[in-house]
């Protein structure tokens, strides 16, 4: 809905469309089914029979391309950070991030570890923080309803420009280490002369 996102000022058509969009988007938040650690089990519990996420229009999608909410359910390690970043980059705008649990908020019980980042807000724009270790399913539902409120009450007019100003995804340089590619025969065993040219296994465009 580029009309609304890119509109410079609010007119009758854009505000009406904006209202419609807010109504629609707030009622069909589709999170990515990206489990990281302990909290992902509580996330699945929330999706299962007793707590039933579906009744809020929240349905888990396995592909980030189909999703608009990223729930970060666990500690982000140094090795995981580029992956989470990449999942986020693959999601279409508009997108929201929920930091679920102490680890995603601040590193939690592993805050002093050498391999854990102090929270996912160090590289993602987080909208809702849900404390707990892990948060109860009720807490996750509450957090999602807060996000729903936020979506329903925030105008999308001009949000494309705002988002751009707020957040520029860093360059990932997402390539497999040469060593691994060589092991799989994708690169020749000794490619020092070729300057690392790779025709197979090239990462496709991330949108």
């Amino acid at each position: 809905m580029g009309i609304v996102d890119r509109a410079e000022e609010a007119g009758f058509i854009t505000t009406t469309l904006d209202k419609l969009l807010r109504w629609g988007r707030s009622r069909s938040m589709w999170p990515v089914n990206a489990g990281i650690a302990c909290c992902s089990l509580e996330m699945m519990t929330t999706g299962a029979g007793r707590y039933d996420f579906d009744r809020f229009g929240i349905m888990f999608r396995s592909s980030p391309r189909q999703a608009d909410v990223l729930i970060v359910p666990g500690p982000i390690t140094k090795k995981m950070q580029p992956i989470v970043q990449r999942v986020y980059n693959q999601m279409a705008e508009p997108r929201w991030v929920i930091a679920m649990g102490s680890c995603a908020i601040s590193g939690g019980a592993f805050a002093d570890s050498y391999n854990v980042l102090p929270g996912c807000d160090t590289f993602l724009p987080v909208d809702v923080y849900i404390p707990g270790c892990p948060p109860r399913p009720e807490a996750l539902i509450y957090g999602c309803l807060k996000l729903k409120e936020q979506i329903a009450n925030t105008s999308f007019i001009g949000s494309a420009a705002r988002n751009k100003a707020l957040y520029v995804p860093p360059d990932l340089g997402e390539e497999w280490p040469d060593e691994l590619l060589r092991q799989f025969g994708v690169l020749p065993a000794d490619d020092s002369s070729e300057g690392g040219s790779r025709d197979v296994g090239e990462v496709r465009d991330e949108g």
Partner: peptide, 8 residues
């Protein structure tokens, strides 16, 4: 366990 570029 650590990233490939770890040094420690």
């Amino acid at each position: 366990l650590q990233p490939d570029d770890a040094t420690t």
